[in-house]
Write a protein that binds this DNA or RNA. Structure first.
Length: 206
DNA sequence: AAACCGTGCAACCGCCTCCTA
DNA sequence: GTAGGAGGCGGTTGCACGGTT
């Protein structure tokens, strides 16, 4: 499969599109050794690919749990919503969409939304509504927090530092850890607030 | 029919973080 | 404590393909 002009060898490493034979070698390696330790792939399989290239190929293409096909309207909404929350944290967003890769989501966003060009008015409205809702609840939350702090100032120790991540460990697959720059309590609240079903029902009743 | 354009997707690059010796 | 290596992540690029002009 050398239809690309950039299928080439450079510094001993092959670059460009993967061949079926290379895929087979990589799959064989992962079956035997598991994923990880990508730099030893070349040594053990004879594959002329860098560890990075192997990892990328596995994560974005060969993984058996990958979902093939188009992004569904539901998934699109999740992407919009999570992007509103986290920005370009594609891997974080991808964790909320089983079977989708960060690369896939990144590509999707780029072609559909990057140029200020949402695919439908519905989605634009949904996004605006979500952001508004978030602002309102955030406001309410801060007021509530003040009340709570008056009552019990030390109660939030559990949510400090690493605590926030472990506190929501059972939700981790749905709502990955938020960006560190933001307040953990706020983000935990935002996760609770973002009731996906309600959101989906509003913007894309199917 | 040919040229052009937009979209989809695979892959690379460079930077950053984490882990280990 | 720190340096080096490995892996993770986001940004970007390049090609194929289908639709439109």
């Amino acid at each position: 499969m050398e239809q690309y002009g950039w299928g080439r060898e450079e510094g001993g490493w092959r670059k460009g599109p993967w061949t079926a034979q290379e895929d087979k070698l990589l799959l064989g390696y992962v079956r035997q050794q598991g994923d990880g330790r990508w730099n030893s792939v070349a040594k053990l399989t004879g594959l002329k690919r860098s560890g990075k290239s192997c990892r990328l190929r596995w994560v974005n293409y060969l993984r058996p749990d990958l979902k093939r096909g188009k992004i569904t309207p539901q998934e699109e909404t999740v992407i919009l919503e999570l992007h509103a929350l986290w920005g370009n944290r594609w891997s974080t967003i991808a964790r909320s969409l089983p079977g989708r890769t960060d690369n896939e989501i990144k590509n999707y966003w780029r072609t559909h939304f990057k140029k200020g060009k949402p695919s439908s008015k519905n989605i634009e409205r949904a996004r605006a509504r979500f952001l508004k809702q978030r602002r309102e609840i955030m406001q309410g939350h801060h007021e509530h927090q003040r009340d709570v702090q008056d009552d019990d100032g030390a109660a939030s120790a559990d949510n400090n530092g690493d605590g926030a991540a472990s506190h929501h460990a059972d939700e981790a697959t749905t709502w990955p850890a938020p960006p560190p720059a933001q307040d953990d309590d706020d983000l935990a609240m935002m996760r609770d607030m973002a009731d996906m079903d309600d959101f989906l029902q509003y913007h894309d009743p199917m």
